[in-house]
């Protein structure tokens, strides 16, 4: 294991400076927060740079924090350097009014559906995505169901007593 968390941090800070907003380690995985409009630059750098080599996109998902004003929607990337076997988590935050994020489909073909899913759940607008449509839900759906303000339960049920089920 030659690629340590310190190396990653130093390389990234040297390259991007204050665009790397925060750095933390939790449960053995390094996690960086990047300025939202720099996500693609950082991803490309980590993909191309020979010392970094994060060329495998493990996961891409969204999180909704309704209480954080101005950065309600978070997009989380899990990257993996398969050669050195190092994992890295990268986060960006965007406001819910204008959730524009650059797409990673140019780098990872696998990001295509993951971004569509994130759009479907949270309404993140991936700029430059080739085919940004709903993927899991019906096209007619007019809200983004995983945002915290929307209810889980099926609203068409009539056999449940609302008082008993707390809705």
């Amino acid at each position: 294991m030659s690629l340590t968390h310190e190396t990653i941090k130093e390389t990234l800070v040297a390259q991007f400076g204050d665009k790397i907003l925060s750095w933390e380690e939790s449960y053995g995985m390094a996690c960086i927060t990047v300025q939202a409009d720099h996500n693609l630059k950082v991803l490309t750098f980590m993909n191309d740079d020979p010392t970094m080599g994060f060329q495998f996109l493990t996961d891409l998902t969204g999180v909704h924090y309704p209480d954080r004003k101005g950065e309600e929607i978070s997009v989380v990337y899990h990257l993996h350097n398969l050669k050195e076997n190092v994992r890295l988590r990268m986060k960006i935050y965007v406001p819910v009014e204008k959730p524009d994020v650059y797409t990673a489909t140019g780098l990872f073909s696998g990001a295509n559906w993951m971004e569509r899913e994130t759009y479907d759940f949270y309404g993140v607008n991936f700029v430059g995505h080739p085919d940004l449509r709903r993927i899991l839900n019906v096209d007619e759906m007019d809200y983004f169901p995983l945002r915290k303000e929307f209810p889980l339960e099926d609203q068409t049920r009539i056999d449940k007593d609302d008082e008993m089920f707390g809705r």
């Binding site: 493990t58 996961d59 998902t61 999180v63 909704h64 899990h78 696998g110 295509n112 559906w113 993951m114």
Partner: peptide
């Protein structure tokens, strides 16, 4: 607060 499943099927079916 949030639980996301990385489902291998979903990711490789797009290929």
């Amino acid at each position: 607060y949030r639980l996301h499943f990385r489902r291998p099927c979903f990711i490789y079916y797009q290929a």
